[in-house]
């Protein structure tokens, strides 16, 4: 008799637990859905300001950057993502020669977004922005010249 009871009791317990599960999914069936419809929601999409999608150089109104070509970012980068090409120009007023930035090459494809370059920059000449739609068909397009 006892055996019989556990047999039926087991079935009852099973049915109860299964019904609880079913009631949960049934409730979810009618709750609002959470799918984010990217790219249709581009306009309302909020990406955090701190998101690191791509390195860029903030420019002032005249298109000048603040880079002094010190090379700290290049030497701090673990992946060799940044290449700085410099040229020497002679200052007209003082007559001293000075190293200035010619090209700031950034390889998005090998960047691991560790932020060491931004942290180390003495002039805050580089920063990360959150333009994350960077898919291209050719890897060469990921090599970007940052200064104008």
């Amino acid at each position: 008799m006892e055996q019989k009871f556990t047999y039926i009791g087991k079935i009852a317990d099973t049915i109860k637990s299964l019904a609880t599960g079913l009631s949960v999914t049934m409730r979810e069936f009618f709750t609002p859905k959470v799918t984010e419809q990217y790219p249709e929601n581009r306009k309302t999409l909020k990406i955090s300001d701190r998101h690191r999608a791509m390195l860029y150089m903030p420019l002032d109104e005249e298109g000048n950057n603040r880079c002094i070509a010190c090379g700290l970012c290049q030497s701090n980068c673990p992946n060799g993502t940044i290449t700085i090409k410099t040229k020497t120009v002679v200052d007209e007023e003082t007559g001293k020669s000075k190293k200035v930035l010619e090209e700031y090459i950034y390889d998005l494809g090998s960047c691991m977004y560790c932020q060491l370059c931004v942290n180390v920059c003495p002039k805050d000449a580089i920063a990360f922005n959150n333009s994350f739609e960077n898919a291209v068909f050719d890897r060469n397009k990921l090599i970007i010249k940052l200064n104008k």
């Binding site: 979810e28 959470v34 955090s48 701190r50 998101h51 690191r52 977004y113």
Partner: peptide, 28 residues
Amino acid sequence: TTFIYGFRDREKVLDIFEEVTGGRLIQN
């Protein structure tokens, strides 16, 4: 289904991470 429920809620943690650290998985 449980998998999706879990991920739905995990997304909320990741949103907090993104807001504060700028990263969702690799937070740095």
